[in-house]
Design a protein around this nucleic acid. Structure first.
Lengths: 155, 155
DNA sequence: ACTAAGATTCTGTATTGACAGAAAATTCTG
DNA sequence: CAGAATTTTCTGTCAATACAGAATCTTAGT
């Protein structure tokens, strides 16, 4: 086996481990890994099964998850009745936006905490105020940053 | 039971669910939840056991994890031989910095992917270049943002 | 419409991980 | 420095989850 083969495997496995850390199934990470370096970028379910030595059901389920996350998309199929996937341009930005939404939810929870402490000594609120301030700023600034990246890409 | 009791429980559970989504054990999220709204902010292991109806081992393990993450800290103990925890001021910023580090690791993986594609058609590299550009920008800008937040807090 | 190829969903199983309880280690008092 | 109180680590168990394989549903070609 050529060196390159192992490097690809390693890349795919590292992506999958990263996504596992985020609570996303390993298989989804592996699929993404393949679709990030595959040539051609479009890969059928069977291609993915073979490359990852996994069942169709596992591929199908995890690919759907990645689609919902906006990281991959179905590609126009060269063959009839066959589903092809590829990385979705702009997928990484969508991924970051998902993160932003998650942060926003934590922001909301923090505000509920502040509400709970509103009648107590204000110094008790500091730990939640800190969260509130931080998330507010990030929610103000990060979308702008992402927009800038997006525009840069589209030129 | 007063209304407030349920609101606190709900708050704690929502924090724990959020952290679970991030791949952090539920119990750690619950401990953080308690320490965000507790009065006084310092709570002993036994306090936490009682409030969360959990074993000492579970509290001990998860509290250590939160300490390593920089979200909570051991507090000077009013009683000898007894460990008290509290939310660590600046903890949320540490939390965000942890995120940054995780992103940086993905950044590194993406660059390895680019390396793998360096001899192929440049259009194939776009999906990884996108990641590279995005993470670079975020890694440039977010630390500045966090620093600003930090300085604001310390005034 | 029927049929065949393929994708998706459902069900069972094996693995993983969270937690309780027990054992070991640590810390403080007399 | 002995001993008691408290925390931490270790071990076993239970529940949750990822995946394989089977069953069902979809799609397209005749």
């Amino acid at each position: 086996m050529p060196e390159r083969y192992y490097e690809e495997k390693h890349f795919i496995e590292d992506i999958s481990l990263y996504f596992e850390q985020m609570g996303i199934p390993r298989m989804a990470g592996r699929i993404l890994g393949v679709l990030l370096i595959a040539n051609p970028p479009e890969q059928s379910i069977d291609d993915l099964c073979e490359q990852l030595q996994a069942s169709k059901s596992a591929i199908s389920t995890s690919a759907r998850l990645l689609s919902e996350m906006g990281l991959i998309e179905r590609a126009p199929s060269p063959l009839p009745r066959r589903v092809y996937f590829r990385f979705q341009p702009g997928g990484w930005i969508k991924f970051m936006r998902m993160y932003l939404r998650m942060m926003a939810s934590l922001h909301g929870i923090a505000e509920r905490g502040l509400e709970l402490l509103k009648d107590e000594d204000p110094t008790l609120s500091e730990r939640l105020q800190e969260a509130h301030d931080m998330f507010s700023l990030i929610e103000d600034e990060l979308p702008m940053l992402l927009k800038r990246i997006e525009e840069k890409r589209q030129i």
